[in-house]
């Protein structure tokens, strides 16, 4: 039976449509959630992510979605993608200091390394703890990254990746809450598999 996934569409930004198509390819039914009263009746939530931390968090607050999203993420398996992952943190530093959802302890800071930033392209991930998200995925598999900021976290790291000699957090998890810095919706069949793993949680 197809799981119904609530895809949170927080206003004017985000590559929501790309994520929606990938979730459908992974076998999900997708319900777009745009207002506070649309959160009910789904088994999973996805918080997508193209945007800048400050603008998007402010938009979420202005639209009264902060508390509903925080509650949703604590009630059902939830996956944050890229900015959607970063916003789970306590604090972000993109265009000023902005409070995040504070669901996973940590800060989101500009990447500093020897290679160009933004980090853009396919890259490997190195799981450092057992996670159902990576079940059945080839260890050599590559995922698509496009980000300038990284999630600095010491407690809930699920996978690391490396860019320009710098290792950074590429996935976090805490209970049923997951976050990936890369874009599964843009990572070919491996990404679809990861989404399938998520919706089967």
């Amino acid at each position: 039976m197809a799981q119904q996934v609530g895809l949170i569409d927080f206003g004017s930004v985000g590559n929501v449509e790309s994520v929606r198509r990938a979730l459908i390819a992974a076998g999900a039914e997708v319900k777009l959630i745009r207002t506070a009263d649309e959160f009910d009746g789904v088994s999973h939530y996805v918080l997508p992510g193209v945007g800048s931390f400050h603008e998007v968090m402010e938009g979420i607050r202005a639209n009264g979605l902060e508390e509903p999203i925080r509650q949703a993420a604590q009630s059902r398996p939830t996956l944050g993608i890229c900015l959607g992952m970063q916003m789970l943190a306590s604090l972000g530093f993109e265009f000023g200091e902005t409070a995040g959802f504070d669901l996973i302890d940590g800060e989101v800071r500009l990447m500093r390394c020897k290679a160009p930033v933004p980090h853009i392209g396919f890259n490997r991930i190195e799981p450092i703890k057992e996670s159902p998200l990576f079940a059945g995925i080839d260890p050599e598999a590559e995922f698509y990254f496009m980000h300038s900021y990284e999630f600095v976290n010491y407690t809930d790291v699920c996978a690391l990746s490396s860019h320009g000699g710098h290792r950074f957090v590429s996935a976090v998890s805490k209970g049923d809450l997951y976050g990936v810095q890369f874009h599964p919706e843009k990572s070919r069949e491996h990404g679809i598999r990861l989404l399938k793993n998520f919706i089967e949680l």
Binding site: S12, V13, V50, G51, S52, E55, L83, P118, H147, S148
Partner: peptide, 9 residues
């Protein structure tokens, strides 16, 4: 554009 969507986009 960068301020709203992030430089990477």
């Amino acid at each position: 554009a960068a301020r709203l969507f992030g430089a990477q986009s």
